[in-house]
Design a protein around this nucleic acid. Structure first.
Lengths: 211, 211
DNA sequence: GTCTATAGATCGATAGAC
DNA sequence: GTCTATCGATCTATAGAC
C-alpha cells in the first residue's frame, strides 16, 4: 500500500502541508540566526544543522537574505499582546494592567532573540523593522490605549493622553532587566526580578493616574 | 638593561601621540561598523575608506575582532549621564529630573548606533555587553538613585524603592521614539516628539512620587 | 526534490619590498 | 611604518546526476 507515498507533494509553501524538510530548514536557520546573527551563519551550517543539502535550501528560498526575511516576516506578524481587552470591565483596571504586563513581558522574553536580530539587521532590512514595529509595539499600544480611554471615561482614572500613557506603560516594562536580556547578560533569580518589575510598573503607573 | 630606554615606542595605544592613520582607521571602521554591522564590513572596505592599506590596519590591530572590540571599549567606557547630581539642591527636583532626562535622551540618540552594535554582537562579545551595561545604564541608575534618596529624605517626594525608581525613570525615556531610533525607522518632527516624551515622563514620574 | 561536487567571488591575514 | 601582491580559507550560489 504505497499509494499515499506520493500524495502531498506539489505546494511550495502551502499553508499546512509543507514538507518536513522546509520546516527543518526554518527551525535550524532561525535557531542559528538568533544564536550567532545573520552575518555569522553560513548556508552550509544551516544545511548541516537541518539535515539537508544546501541545494535543497536554495530550491525553497531564493537566497540567504530571502530565507532570513521570510523567517522574520512570519515571526514579526504574530500578535503581541494576547490578552483580549475589549470585553474587560473598567473596574478591573489594576488586574487588567497586570495581565497586560505579564503578557507583554512574556512575549519580550520569548521574542528577545528576534528583537535582537531585527535591531541588528535593521539597516539591511528596513521593511522588516517597519513590520516589527507596527505588529509589535504599535499594535500593543493601540489596544491598551482603547482600554485606558474607557477607564478614564468611567472616571476611574485620570490620564491626560491615553496613547502616550500606553506607550509609557510598555516602556516601564522595558527596564534594566529587559536590557540585560537584550544584551544576553546573566540575571540571577529572573522570575523574582520580573515579578517585582511588573508590580512596580503597575504601581507607579496607577499612582500617577489615580483620579 | 635598557628596558625602559625605548620609552615612547612600545605603547599600543599611547594617550595622544597616535598616528593620523590610526585615527583615520578608527573613524572609518566605526562609521562602517555602525552603518552596516560587524559582519557586513570587510577589512578591504575599512582600508579603502580610511585611505590606508590593509596591512597598515593589521600593524595596529591584531585582527578584525580586536579592532571592533577596541572601538567598543573606548566608546562604552564614556560617561553616560553627564549632569552632576551631587551638588544639586533637593528642592530643584523637577528641574533636575528634566535635565537628567535631556542628558540621557541626548546620549541615547548619540549612542544609538553603538547600542545597536553592542546588542547585535553581544553573543560574540559578551564582555563588551557587560562593560556597556555597567558604564551606561547601571552607572546612570546609581547616580540618580542617590539624588532621589536625598529628595525623599527631605520629605519632598515619597518613593518606596529609589533604585528601582531610577531604573523606571530611565525606562520611561526609552519609549516608542527610542524604539524607532533603534530600528532606524523615520521619525517626523523628532525634536517635538522627544520634548513631549521627556515632559510626559517627568510628569508621570512626579505624579506617582508626590509625597 | 534532493543529492554531490564545484564554480566563482570575497574575505581575513601575511610576505616581502621599500 | 606603509605599501603592493597574494595565499589559503570560506562563503554564496549553481550545475548536473539520480
Amino acid at each position: 500500500m504505497e499509494i499515499e507515498a506520493k500524495a502531498p507533494k506539489k505546494e511550495p509553501i502551502s499553508p499546512e502541508s509543507r514538507s518536513g524538510k522546509v520546516e527543518a530548514i526554518e527551525r535550524a536557520a532561525f535557531q542559528l540566526f538568533h544564536e550567532r546573527g545573520y552575518g555569522h551563519v553560513s548556508m552550509d551550517e544551516i544545511a548541516r544543522s537541518a539535515g539537508v543539502s544546501k541545494a535543497t535550501i536554495y530550491s525553497h528560498f531564493a537566497d540567504k537574505a530571502e530565507l532570513f526575511a521570510s523567517l522574520m516576516r512570519a515571526n514579526c506578524s504574530m500578535t503581541w499582546v494576547r490578552t483580549e481587552l475589549e470585553g474587560r470591565p473598567v473596574e478591573d483596571y489594576r488586574a487588567v494592567l497586570k495581565e497586560v504586563a505579564e503578557s507583554y513581558v512574556a512575549i519580550l522574553s520569548e521574542k528577545g532573540p528576534m528583537t535582537r536580530m531585527v535591531i541588528a539587521e535593521a539597516p539591511r532590512f528596513p521593511e522588516m523593522a517597519e513590520i516589527f514595529f507596527a505588529s509589535g509595539p504599535m499594535a500593543s499600544r493601540g489596544a491598551l490605549c482603547l482600554y485606558l480611554e474607557r477607564v478614564c471615561a468611567a472616571g476611574l482614572l485620570s490620564i491626560p493622553d491615553c496613547d502616550q500613557a500606553a506607550s509609557q506603560f510598555f516602556a516601564l516594562l522595558r527596564d534594566d532587566i529587559y536590557l540585560r536580556l537584550m544584551l544576553g547578560l546573566p540575571i540571577d533569580d529572573p522570575a523574582a526580578k520580573i515579578r517585582k518589575s511588573i508590580d512596580d510598573a503597575v504601581d507607579l503607573f496607577l499612582r500617577a493616574a489615580r483620579a
